[in-house]
């Protein structure tokens, strides 16, 4: 983009990046792409180092008390920021939906107040770009055939709606093909994939079959955990489709 710094939509906005523990450790390219896109749009990005995890691995396994320390760490890391942005529907959803419940469980009124402030300021990166920056064309170029899986928590907890489709539709060179049975869960479900491994694999196999049927080169989603699930099955089947996070497509520009 060639606009002067002042002319860019994110000018003057400071964004605290919520990398999420799984991206930080296993998929560092995703938060890096988030930094790249947000900076390209003029935002100042900071990474509060105290951050760890949204706690959903504990919460969703039923360990509420064990999730509370993650909530405390989260409000400590992100308190005071107006915009907290993460590249994960699932983790953002856990913060917005579950942190209030966990804070209540802790019985700590101070924590409840902090969560009431911090949790609603946490946005999925697609929400931030479209709603706060008012941008749908981020200047990306990705000359490939892709299909999009709307991950369950992006769809039903964070409710990102058609924002990802809108963002993808503005990417130059990109051909978006419809995924059959798109809204069906891929079978990941965190510890579900271990506790109910057989059902999980049966569901992932359905999703992988639908993805392969599109003939797309890339499978796009807003959550790396689901991509890891579907991608793992696709790779085992030697399918040529490569999983990629939405923000990594948006980070691609011509000549890059």
């Amino acid at each position: 983009m060639t606009a002067s710094p002042q002319g860019r939509p994110g000018h003057g906005l400071t964004v605290a990046l919520f990398a999420t523990c799984i991206n930080d450790t296993m998929f560092p390219g995703t938060p890096r792409a988030t930094v790249e896109v947000l900076e390209r749009l003029g935002c100042t990005v900071v990474f509060p180092r105290e951050q760890t995890c949204c706690g959903q691995i504990f919460t969703n396994t039923g360990y509420f008390d064990e999730a509370v320390p993650s909530v405390r760490t989260y409000v400590k890391a992100f308190g005071g920021y107006d915009y907290i942005v993460g590249p994960s529907g699932s983790c953002v959803g856990a913060v917005r939906d579950q942190h209030p419940i966990l804070a209540q469980r802790s019985g700590d009124a101070g924590l409840q107040r902090e969560v009431a402030q911090v949790a609603p300021r946490t946005l999925d990166v697609s929400e931030f770009i479209v709603d706060v920056l008012g941008v749908t064309d981020v200047g990306a170029y990705f000359p490939h055939r892709v299909t999009y899986h709307p991950t369950c928590h992006s769809l039903r907890v964070v409710k990102v709606g058609d924002r990802p489709y809108t963002l993808l539709s503005k990417v130059r060179g990109l051909e978006l093909v419809e995924l059959p049975d798109a809204r069906q869960c891929c079978g990941f479900g965190g510890t579900f994939s271990l506790k109910n491994a057989d059902v999980s694999v049966a569901m992932a196999a359905d999703k992988a079959r639908n993805v392969a049927s599109t003939g797309a080169e890339y499978l796009v989603a807003g959550d790396n955990s689901c991509l890891m699930n579907i991608g793992g099955v696709l790779s085992r089947q030697n399918a040529a489709v490569k999983p990629i996070h939405l923000i990594e497509i948006l980070a691609h520009t011509e000549g890059n």
Binding site: A19, N23, D24, T25, M26, F27, P28, G29, P31, R32, F47, R49, S193, L194, A197, V201, A204, A205, M228, N229, G231, G232, V233, S235, R236
Partner: peptide
């Protein structure tokens, strides 16, 4: 139980941090 049906990429050598 996960790996029986899925390939998993090696963990990266540099974290985001």
């Amino acid at each position: 139980k996960w790996a029986n049906a899925r390939d998993t990429a090696n963990p990266p050598t540099q974290t985001f941090r």
